[in-house]
Design a binder for these strands. Structure first.
Length: 480
RNA sequence: GCCCCCAUCGUCUAGUGGCCCAGGACGCCGCCCUUUCAAGGCGGUAACGGGGAUUCGAACUCCCCUGGGGGCACCA
């Protein structure tokens, strides 16, 4: 039995888009599920659009998401000799021919085709050129490309695992270029040759490529390449407005979500749910291992899916809470340490992560919540909006006085610090009154639990902030 | 313009002729819990695009319409 082989073949022209990452994921999950081979192939035949940085970026992103590859990265540009050989073979067999038409000529005739109500595309002008014409073109100094001769009639069909029978009339597909005038191969050719040479058995990719399959399959056939691979065209990932997801919609690349504080576990989990489902009433929060075990091409959906960041937020929150606290801490420690500098305190940090873990849905949120701890007392600031909330608290002056008195006198532990009962005795609603404490101590109306915050800050620094707030309040009330 | 693909709650989806006056998840709304915000618990809102046909019976099969998406490059 031939081993199952799949490939993920991105074009290195930028960051990995989430839709693209989803394609990588489905290939990877499928390969791991069936014990096959996952090949990473970089489709860089378009040298102008490919960069070293992008090639490295693709690998970083894949690794960060938790996907590894068994072979590669194979750079398609390094396989040029073999591509050329295939072109020569097609030329010799009469399956392809040289075309000398200039860009201007093509454009002109294309317009004419449209006028005549026919589909635009190459008209076959150079199909049967005699030597005389060729010599004339060469004398003119023209350069040529190589075009593949597509059938004039008949139907091309293939069976897609998720789409079923897919077919198209050959008459609607014109002769297409497989070799540029500079001698470099195009996607169709390189794709067909490499899949053949690499023994790829399953091609899993986005639905936007479904129409190209006929051409690639015809090329493969002309090259004498045995039975075609199994095709599975995945539904597209769309933005909320049902258009193709792009930068215009905000975050669209995996790296964007990474810097927004999303966990790789969550991204991969969420992406798996886009175009695939684990089945009837099954748990949706799944680890990579669980996904591998559950994944099945048969359960791939066939209609486009809208990317919903709200659900990603939820999945991420689930993963934030699922992670061991120490693991979570290690993921943000470098950044917090760097921002804190001298003021960093390992014990305080550990405590902050522990109490922050269940109330944040992203790493950024978690980090932001503890910034009041590692900021210098002179740099500590309360924004206007938060201060307005404090001022609105009923009997806020008394609330702050009570807090100050309690913090000054109580035993030093997070439990003993709890002055909810004292506030009740004062006759104010703790739920409302505490807002003032949050603002005074943390600089914002919501954040880490207040008594933990005070404890982490230490008696001196907490009192400094509470007194400062009381003073500012006093000054304000005198002024009015 | 031509070609291809798709069509269940706002969103992701379950559903492959009777188990469905359609189930789950996110979101949203309400209540509870509560030191803020969350988290958590409980409950609620909400969908088979339209029209034909087949059938004893259609979300599921077929046809038409409509809608959405994709493709038609010397991009991949």
């Amino acid at each position: 039995m031939t081993p199952i082989r799949v490939r993920y073949s991105p074009a290195p022209s930028g960051e990995i888009h989430v839709g693209n990452a989803r394609t990588a994921l489905f290939n990877w999950l499928f390969a791991r599920h069936v014990g096959g081979v996952f090949v990473l192939r970089i489709e860089d035949t378009n040298r102008e659009k490919s960069t070293e940085a992008a090639i490295a970026g693709v690998q970083d992103t894949l690794r960060w998401l938790g996907m590894d590859w068994d072979e590669g990265p194979v750079l398609q540009s390094g396989l040029a000799a073999r591509h050329l050989e295939a072109v020569e073979q097609l030329l010799a067999d009469g399956r392809a021919y040289r075309c000398w038409c200039t860009e201007a000529e093509l454009r002109e005739r294309n317009e004419a085709e449209k006028e005549a109500g026919r589909p635009p595309g190459y008209d076959g002008h150079c199909r049967e050129l005699d030597d005389e014409h060729v010599a004339a073109y060469e004398a003119e100094g023209r350069t040529s490309v190589v075009r593949f001769r597509t059938p004039d009639e008949g139907v091309s069909r293939f069976t897609d695992v998720v789409r079923g029978e897919v077919s198209v009339e050959w008459s609607t597909i014109r002769d297409f270029v497989i070799l540029r005038s500079d001698g470099s191969p195009l996607f169709f050719l390189a794709n067909a040759v490499d899949d053949l040479d690499m023994g790829i058995t399953h091609v899993i990719r986005g639905e936007d490529l479904i129409d190209t399959t006929h051409r690639v399959l015809a090329l493969r056939d002309a090259l004498g390449g045995g039975p075609p691979p199994v095709y599975a065209h995945l539904p597209l990932v769309l933005a909320a407005d049902r258009a193709k997801l792009s930068k215009r919609h905000g975050a669209d690349a995996v790296e964007d979500f990474r810097s927004l504080g999303y966990l790789p576990e969550a991204i991969v989990n969420y992406l798996a749910l886009l175009g695939w489902s684990p089945g009837e009433s099954a748990e949706e929060v799944l680890s990579l291992d669980e996904l591998v075990a559950a994944f099945d091409l048969d359960r791939v959906t066939n209609s486009a899916a809208v990317f919903d960041q709200k659900k990603l937020d939820w999945v991420n929150g689930e993963w934030m809470r699922r992670l061991a606290t120490s693991d979570l801490a290690s993921r943000i420690e470098p950044a917090v340490r760097e921002a804190a500098g001298e003021r960093f305190d390992a014990d305080v940090f550990a405590h902050a992560v522990a109490v922050g873990q269940e109330r944040s849905s992203t790493l950024v949120q978690l980090t932001d919540q503890m910034d009041f701890l590692f900021v210098g007392d002179d740099a500590f600031a309360i924004d206007d909006e938060a201060w307005a909330r404090l001022e609105k608290v009923e009997r806020v002056g008394e609330v702050l006085d009570t807090a100050i008195a309690h913090v000054e006198a109580c035993e030093w532990s997070a439990d003993a610090l709890n002055f909810v009962d004292v506030l009740k005795n004062l006759g104010v609603k703790p739920g409302k009154a505490m807002v003032a404490i949050y603002v005074a101590v943390e600089g914002r109306a919501q954040g880490l639990p207040a008594f933990d915050a005070i404890w982490m800050l230490g008696r001196e620094r907490a009192l400094l902030r509470l007194r400062a707030a009381r003073e500012r309040l006093g000054a304000a009330s005198r002024a009015t």
